[in-house]
Design a protein around this nucleic acid. Sequence first.
DNA 1: ATTGGTGCAAAGGATTTGCAGTCTA
DNA 2: TAGACTGCAAATCCTTTGCACCAAT
Lengths: 146, 146
Amino acid sequence: MNASQNQWPLNRPATVKLLDSYGVQPTQQRIDIAEILFARPQHLSADQVLTEVNKGKPSVSKATVYNTLGLFADKGLVRQVIVDPSRVFYDSNTSEHHHIYNIDTGTLTDVSSEQITVSGLPVLSEGMVAEGIDIIIRVRSQNPAL
Amino acid sequence: MNASQNQWPLNRPATVKLLDSYGVQPTQQRIDIAEILFARPQHLSADQVLTEVNKGKPSVSKATVYNTLGLFADKGLVRQVIVDPSRVFYDSNTSEHHHIYNIDTGTLTDVSSEQITVSGLPVLSEGMVAEGIDIIIRVRSQNPAL
DNA sequence: ATTGGTGCAAAGGATTTGCAGTCTA
DNA sequence: TAGACTGCAAATCCTTTGCACCAAT
C-alpha cells in the first residue's frame, strides 16, 4: 500500500491502516502527524509539521516530531527531499517524481516522472545498487530589477 | 575562464589569475584554499578543506574557510552540491555534470552530462528562471548479507 | 584614513540524544 | 510487567556572526 494510492485527505481509519501496513505502531501522536502529512501531497519541514500539529492544542513535542518523521522516512511512508542545506523536507507523495525548487521562496513543486525521460544513465560499478534518482530543477523568481 | 579548462593541479600563478578573473582578491588564505580545491576535480566539505589547509602549519581559521567557500560559490568558482543534510560539498569542477552519491560512504562521483540526456523538462511558469538542473543518483554499497 | 580580510569566540538553527515518566500489548 | 513511546532539556554539529586587529589601497 501507498498513501498516494488513496484519495486524499486520508481519514483517520485509513491513516491508521496505512501506518499499520508499514509496520508503524499507530499512536496518537503518529496519527496526528500522519494526518497532516497525508492531508494532500506536499512537502513539509519538521518545523512546519511541528507548527501544524500543534495548531489549537499543543499535543506533540518537537522530539517526537523529529523521531516520527525519521521513522516514517525509514519505513518508506514519506520521502526526504534534500535541496536546502538548512533543512530537510518530507514529501508525502512517495510515488516516483521529481522536483522544482524555488531558491527564493524555498518552495518545492512536483514534476511527474512520466514527463521527464532520462537516458544514458551510467552503469554502476560492481556492488553498487541504485536507491533512486533525484532530479532537481533549481529556479528563482526572476527579479525584473536585476 | 574556468578552472576546469586548465591542467590540474593549478600552480600558484594560475591560481592567482583564476581568482582575479572571478573578481576575488587573491589573499594568502584564499590562495591556500584555492590550491587545495583546484588540485584536481573533487568534492570537499568545509571541514575537509579546513583540515587540508592546515596540514603542517595551521594558517587559516575555520571562519575564513567558511567565508571563503561561500565567496567562491557566490562568484562561481566552485559549485555547492547538496546531497547530504548534514553538510555541503564544494565541487571544484564547475563544468556541467551530475553526480552519483554513495549513501553509505558519503562519496560523490561525477557523471558527465554528455552521457545523460534529459528530455521532457517542464516549461517554467512565468517569471521563473532555471538556475540549473541537478541529477543525483543515490546508490548504496550492496550488502550481500541483506 | 578607509575599506577589505582574518581570527577568535560566541551565537544560531536544525536535529539528536539521555533519561525519567507513560502507555499499552 | 516488559517493551515501546513521549517529552523535556541538554547536547551536537555545521555554519554564521560580532567584533577587534591587521593589511592594502
